[in-house]
Write a protein that binds this DNA or RNA. Structure first.
Length: 780
DNA sequence: CACCAAGGACTTTTT
DNA sequence: GTCCTTGGTG
């Protein structure tokens, strides 16, 4: 009992019902629709809230919390509130604070699954053979550790890669399987049946290092809850209400965790949307949400079906697409925003044409027109299936000076230089951190090579001591060459000195000093590449961000669980991101390029997960379309460069599944598109496409054409070209004026004599007379 | 031990 | 096409 005292050690006073009622009254319920209100007020027993896209899910969650608190059903620290991402947790906390005020600080158990599980584990680490100050390894550390295990076991690490095993182990942990609970047939195919043994060895190594990986946080919780009923009972008393966001994304381990914690009170409220489950590839089980009513008998099920985000055409297009999925709980979303534009779909010639088209439309939307208000760049987003699709857009935007930001990408704390700096700090804090030692013993290069490191590792392993200890002993012998020995001794001496200073020096200052004295920053300064420049800046940013934490320990704890950092205020820029990254966001105008078989739906998804994979891809499409408030534009190409190879593409089956009543072909399609009659262009970048038109005769393209998605004008486009290379491009004939020198694919150079709508009158030097043209004009 | 060339991989992404 | 790892050579 006493070990839980500190649970109540929250900074804010407990909210008093009277205060809440006085300050907020019944106000917080105002403005909710009937269903939302039902979800908020169902405070007894299990509740499943099926919240369709844009139906006010977060609002319901936060209001429900406020309601439970305001009606005195629980104290803030008696609520368990779990989300998947730090961002979601942060947002939730902010929004609750807005309703209930500073008492929200008492919400001690609001966080991600992993951060809450880490808190639980710190209390009871000894029950699974860890100390409460265990370190949390990220995927990088994890893979290096697995690599070592493979080496020790003489497994051919080329045939059986650490990555593969890491993936397997992760999969097992997601399913709640410890080495002991692993089904006999699992891991058979890895390293001639050694999978299970390797898993066991890896867990053993983790325990010795007093470390755990992300999967362990939950898995150890499960082990504790299942083997120690009195510990579980404590948490049953603790958590009177449980709230779960994005329930459709929970994996088996998380599901078991929730069920164990919720079985006593039954006050489990899960919010989610089975149609937006897009993380199956990392262990999410849509099944969890599909069978909620069986798991929690007597559950109240509330469907939020009124969408406040999108127009009816957008909603209907998305609903039509998702209706092709089987095994849904089923919802009928509706909106009062009738009309609006239909979803525009079109087929274009290749990836270049696609980015050209979208960039042009962005420029046009930015400018506005007589019937449309100008849009801000930030109100437009391009949502792609895979990041390789982003490059075409970036190149185009750079060319046209359209501001853009790529959302996602490699994250701050995962960058090599940041991880290096952390490794120094970790090693200063705990000399036994072997993984940190290995990472930086020769970073920057100080003459301690692979051979030496391997030797140290071997000695450490043989005598069962940390590598640092082994190194200390080795420098006293003559086992190493004199030069190596000196380098290693200096390294150890430096670390000891920094460790001594750590007690008095602020950790931000210490970091600065370590980076300087280790030669790390010097090495970067000598490197004149732009990358090195960025890295130096990142390190500066790191030192700055450390100032927000009281102790080094607090800082390190933060970065291991919170792998993101608040980016500064968003500039006005077009947002480019993957469909996955777009979840939870919305934009007035959304572009959905690359709807081609194999790209989207992704071939790999279908190969690896068959029908299930295809359905998840379809949900991804649903998520994509429902991000749009006012306009959604889907496109697909005939030819696409993938990893340096030209491939001919077929329109995605999802294109066929869109309800015709809610989609239309763009009136300008022909401007960019290549119809079946398109001719091969010489002297342009098109020369490089060997796959000319091959897809056009296919049933897929014929269906697309029948739906009107293909341009009726065969292959018109306008290009500005210089030195044989594409340097810029015009979007319309109106970009030309009388007197401009132009180049035409067929007629050569000429001068513009007149502009009329989309037609130019040009006097060509070679042809010797004036021609009216509407295509293939390039500024010369 | 450091450097360079060749070979292979390469969805999605959180914690 | 690009990035990263690995293997060979100086």
């Amino acid at each position: 009992m006493s070990s839980y005292d500190s649970f109540e050690d929250f900074p804010a006073p407990a909210p008093r019902i009277s205060d809440l009622a006085r300050v907020h009254g019944p106000d917080y319920l105002a403005g909710l629709n009937t269903e939302q209100r039902a979800a908020v007020e169902a405070t007894e027993g299990p509740v499943l809230v099926l919240a369709g896209a844009g139906t006010g899910k977060t609002r319901v969650l936060t209001t429900r919390l406020a309601h439970i608190l305001a009606t005195g059903r629980a104290k803030p620290w008696e609520l368990l509130v779990v989300t998947f991402t730090n961002k979601a947790a942060r947002e939730m906390r902010e929004r609750i604070t807005a309703i209930i005020g500073p008492q929200a600080e008492g919400l001690r158990w609001l966080g991600t699954f992993h951060s809450v599980a880490a808190q639980v584990l710190r209390r009871h680490a000894e029950l699974v053979g860890l100390k409460s100050n265990f370190t949390i390894l990220d995927t990088d550390d994890q893979e290096r550790l697995i690599k070592q295990v493979l080496e020790v076991e003489n497994v051919d690490a080329k045939r059986w890669t650490p990555k593969t095993l890491a993936g397997l182990i992760d999969h097992w942990k997601n399913r709640g399987w410890t080495p002991d609970r692993l089904p006999a047939n699992e891991g058979r195919e890895f390293a001639a049946g050694k999978g299970q043994a390797l898993y066991r060895l890896y867990q053993e190594r983790l325990r010795v290092l007093n470390a755990c990986d992300f999967g362990d946080l939950l898995l150890h919780n499960l082990t504790i809850f299942m083997s120690q009923p009195e510990v579980l009972a404590e948490f049953h008393r603790r958590f009177r209400y449980i709230l779960v966001d994005e329930y459709q994304d929970t994996n088996v381990a998380q599901y078991l965790w929730l069920r164990l914690l919720g079985q006593a009170s039954q006050n489990v409220c899960c919010v989610g949307d089975d149609d937006q489950s897009i993380y199956g590839w990392r262990g999410a089980e849509v099944d969890n949400i599909l069978r909620f009513e069986r798991d929690f008998p007597g559950a109240t099920v509330v469907r939020l079906e009124r969408n406040y985000r999108s127009t009816s055409h957008i909603l209907a297009a998305a609903s039509g697409l998702i209706s092709a999925n089987k095994g849904r709980l089923g919802k009928t979303l509706w909106t009062e925003q009738n009309g609006g534009e239909k979803v525009i779909v079109r087929g274009v010639w290749d990836g270049e044409a696609e980015s050209r088209l979208i960039a042009d439309e962005i420029e046009r939307a930015k400018k506005g027109s007589t019937d449309k208000d100008p849009r801000k760049y930030r109100d437009m987003a391009i949502l792609v299936r895979a990041s390789f699709q982003m490059r075409a857009f970036e190149e185009r935007f750079v060319l046209l000076s359209i501001p853009y930001t790529v959302v996602g990408g490699p994250r701050f704390f995962e960058r090599a230089e940041i991880r290096d700096a952390h490794a120094y700090l970790r090693l200063i804090q705990s000399p036994d951190d072997d993984l940190a030692f290995e990472r930086i013993v020769n970073t920057p290069k100080r003459g301690i090579g692979d051979t030496t490191v391997q030797k140290l590792l071997q000695i450490a392993r043989l005598s069962g001591v940390p590598v640092m200890t082994a190194a200390r002993e080795v420098v006293l012998t003559d086992e190493l060459a004199a030069r190596t020995r000196t380098a290693l001794a200096n390294f150890i001496r430096d670390l000891d000195r920094w460790r001594g200073q750590a007690e008095t020096l602020h950790h931000a200052r210490l970091t600065e000093q370590v980076l300087e004295e280790s030669g790390y920053t010097d090495a970067l300064r000598l490197d004149k590449t732009p990358t090195a420049q960025t890295r130096l800046e990142n390190l500066k940013e790191l030192v700055q961000s450390m100032g927000n934490f009281d102790t080094l320990q607090a800082y390190l704890e933060h970065v291991s669980l919170v792998m993101d950092m608040d980016r500064g205020p968003q500039a006005d820029a077009v947002q480019i991101m993957t469909l996955h990254a777009a979840k939870g966001l919305e934009f007035p105008l959304v572009f959905l390029p690359g709807w081609e078989e194999g790209v989207f739906p992704s071939q790999r998804s279908m190969d690896e997960s068959g029908e299930k994979g295809l359905e998840e891809e379809r949900r991804l499409g649903y998520v994509g379309i429902t991000r749009a408030r006012e306009e959604a534009r889907i496109s697909f190409v005939a030819n696409r460069m993938v990893y340096g190879r030209w491939t001919s593409q077929l329109p995605s089956r999802f294109v066929d599944e869109l309800p015709l009543a809610n989609v239309e072909a763009s009136s300008e399609t022909g401007y960019y598109g290549g119809g079946p009659g398109m001719q091969q262009q010489h002297g342009s970048s098109w020369d490089a496409t060997p796959a000319f038109g091959s897809g056009y005769d296919s049933p897929g393209w014929q269906r697309a054409q029948a739906r009107g998605y293909q341009g009726s004008h065969p292959g018109r486009q306008q290009v500005i070209q210089g030195e044989g290379r594409l340097v810029a491009e015009s979007s319309a004939a109106s970009d030309f004026k009388r007197g401009d020198r132009v180049f035409h694919q067929k007629f050569g150079y000429g001068q513009v004599k007149g502009v009329d709508g989309n037609k130019l009158t040009v006097a060509f030097e070679k042809a010797g007379d004036k021609k009216v043209i509407d295509s293939f004009v390039e500024k010369g």
